[in-house]
Design a protein around this nucleic acid. Structure first.
Lengths: 221, 221
DNA sequence: GTAACTATGTGAAACTTTTAACAAGCTCTT
DNA sequence: AAGAGCTTGTTAAAAGTTTCACATAGTTAC
């Protein structure tokens, strides 16, 4: 197949496949079938084969997929086979946690600069990184080849942070702040919102309870 | 309309609507139309009306939606109009950040207990909460009415954490660890994975670059 | 009180994504 | 070397989601 428009859901699943494949690798499995992978990911085997087909043919018929090769192929397809440099704006609790999170570098993302506009934080060292004034973002980022911006400010500061990052020519933003932001068309924004997940779980539980109580009241009749 | 099966995408958007509506409220807007809200959320106005229609009729024809009422209605529909108590397992960097994150309580989620199996962490106090041995989860959680479990362990500990939480009768899990977990059918799991978002942005940028270079090579012909 | 205006709620159409089914192709055995 | 046994890649059908279009209903102006 190859190319044509690729659903966002596919990208999300590919990231999951990599995660699960890494687990299989840790456990010493060399080869995996779409069925096995599907079970571990809780999706349909066809789904996996279709997702992969967008990018090429990675399997061997009658055999399955070679685990390490598939990891490499997916990462290459997604463009995460090299390290992406990132800058972080907003050194609060979350910002600090991300700065200190070792996994990032291991997984191909390297936070190389941290910014904040709070004078008390500027100059402070967090996990071996000096906090710089947000106003000096452009000059500091210059020449560092930063491609991704992480926004971890309070909601009312998110747009300002976005403006500074976009101004420095960064084309990809991950916004952890609970606020929508406006950016030019050629800049990609991803919103990370824990609360969506919390809401989702809360809703599922609420629904279950409602259905159970409907059910028991029906029995009582 | 009301009831019938509700897409997960709708729940996700409803959470976003609440976020944006809160912003409108802060800015002093009392009434909002589906068109205005749609622009702020980057979705289609019909989409908003349809999403809301799953739960009831909240608007006034010819006028729009009353901002505060709509927030209240959506939160009620999702079951987040009361505070949900949560327990956290895994007091690493991320766990600490979540424990200290003030927003949680404000947004209806209250982390009331923290667990870890590292003897060096047990007994430690993090943001006014004592870290308890994971083995003692059930007895500690008992009677506290905890409904949601947050997993912030390393990937290889995630399943263990899930088992303890499920064992304590908790029906909703948010898994921040980069590993899939197995739980009984009546337990709801949401996976929070930053890397999916990073991958997604990295992929979009990579795609843009490819298309731009295709384009310029076409011009060169 | 009626007409003009506006924005919702909804049924049907268009579109997207997922699932099923099967042909193609690799491996191993006989 | 040919055929049985698997598992992929792909086409076609099914399911699900989004968008369109318009009837419905509330508000305001005259």
């Amino acid at each position: 197949m190859k190319s044509e428009h690729i659903p966002n859901a596919t990208i999300k699943r590919l990231a999951m496949y990599v995660q699960v494949l890494e687990t299989f690798k840790r456990e010493g499995n060399q080869v995996v079938s779409s069925e096995t992978l599907a079970k571990a990911c809780n999706v349909n085997p066809s789904q996996i084969r279709k997702d992969l087909a967008y990018f090429g043919e990675f399997g061997v018929r009658g055999v399955g997929y070679h685990v390490q090769d598939l990891i490499t192929s997916i990462k290459h397809s997604l463009g995460v086979d090299h390290v992406w440099k990132a800058a972080l704006v907003g050194v609060g609790n979350l910002g600090r946690a991300l700065l200190c999170h070792q996994d990032f570098k291991y997984r191909g993302f390297d936070i190389v600069a941290a910014f904040d506009c709070d004078p008390f934080k500027i100059g402070e060292e967090v996990c071996g990184m000096e906090v710089v004034c947000t106003r000096r973002l452009k000059e500091t980022a210059e020449g560092k080849n930063i491609e991704i911006g992480l926004i971890t400010t309070p909601p009312n500061r998110a747009q300002r942070a976005a403006n500074f990052l976009v101004g420095a020519g960064i084309k990809g933003l991950i916004n952890f702040a609970p606020a929508r932001i406006n950016v030019p068309d050629d800049v990609h924004v991803e919103y990370v919102d824990f609360f969506h997940h919390l809401y989702s779980v809360a809703f599922s539980i609420t629904l279950d309870r409602k259905q159970n109580s409907d059910f028991s009241s029906r029995i009582d009749d």
